[in-house]
């Protein structure tokens, strides 16, 4: 059973009677443990696709199965719980809480998790350790570099040990050097911890990490190909 499956997925935004179709009938499956990169020119609908797959937004047409179940059958609260337990997000603009320490920022998802508070510190430390920022525990976002901020965001996405990590242009605001550090971390999570990664990018060096590339154009799939990870040489295995 695929982790995620979309059938004829459509998304149309309606604003003052003007309908703007963004996604026009997408169908594909993503299995556990895949590293998928979604590419395409701006306006091709890749961010919208990620929002729908990430359960941040509901599609206007078609079906989306997450874990074998129609997402339209989930209640609002169940979706919130899925976002908390199964999904992790890394945004282009970091979205860290200002005037809040790295440690507290990473703990944020735990607040809504129902996990016992005694475990929070250990879990947060572990996640921060995984992105190599243990020495920045008490720093606030304003004291960090862009690359460090994004690594905090990754630690935050990681802390609940989710199945899927969604990364929306995670290197878009970074120079290529810190971008590579961030991508190496995402790669490591995928390889060593088995997280499914869905990455949106338009940068080719970032795409080098992928094992499968879905290209979008005008809301439709232009191509869906398995590629050799040019960094590790690992080919996607079904």
């Amino acid at each position: 059973m695929p982790l995620m499956e979309v059938k004829n997925l459509e998304m149309t935004y309606t604003d003052e009677d003007v309908a703007t179709p963004v996604l026009r009938g997408l169908s594909f499956k993503i299995n556990r443990g895949e590293f998928v990169t979604v590419m395409g020119p701006s306006g091709s609908g890749k961010s919208t696709l990620l929002h729908i797959l990430g359960l941040l937004e509901r599609q206007s047409g078609g079906e989306y199965f997450f874990g074998g179940k129609q997402t339209s059958e989930y209640s609002e609260d169940e979706i919130a719980k899925l976002r908390n337990k199964k999904l992790g997000f890394v945004f282009q603009s970091f979205n860290l809480l200002p005037r809040t320490t790295v440690f507290e920022n990473v703990k944020l998802p735990l607040l809504y998790s129902g996990i016992k508070e005694e475990l929070w510190d250990t879990m947060a430390r572990k996640a921060i350790d995984a992105v190599g920022l243990s020495h920045r525990l008490d720093f606030e976002p304003s004291q960090l570099s862009g690359g460090e901020k994004q690594r905090v965001a990754i630690a935050r996405a990681l802390v609940n040990n989710p199945e899927v990590i969604f990364a929306d242009e995670p290197t878009g605001n970074l120079d290529s050097k810190s971008g590579e550090v961030v991508m190496d971390i995402i790669q490591k999570l995928h390889n060593e911890m088995g997280h499914t990664v869905i990455l949106i990018t338009h940068e080719t060096y970032t795409a080098e990490y992928a094992e499968r590339i879905i290209r979008l154009r005008d809301g439709m799939i232009e191509s869906d190909t398995k590629v050799l990870n040019r960094r590790t040489g690992k080919l996607f295995q079904k």
């Binding site: 609260d77 908390n84 997000f89 998802p109 809504y112 998790s113």
Partner: peptide, 8 residues
């Protein structure tokens, strides 16, 4: 952000 991280 809080909602994306699982806040109801």
């Amino acid at each position: 952000l809080r909602k994306a991280l699982g806040a109801t």
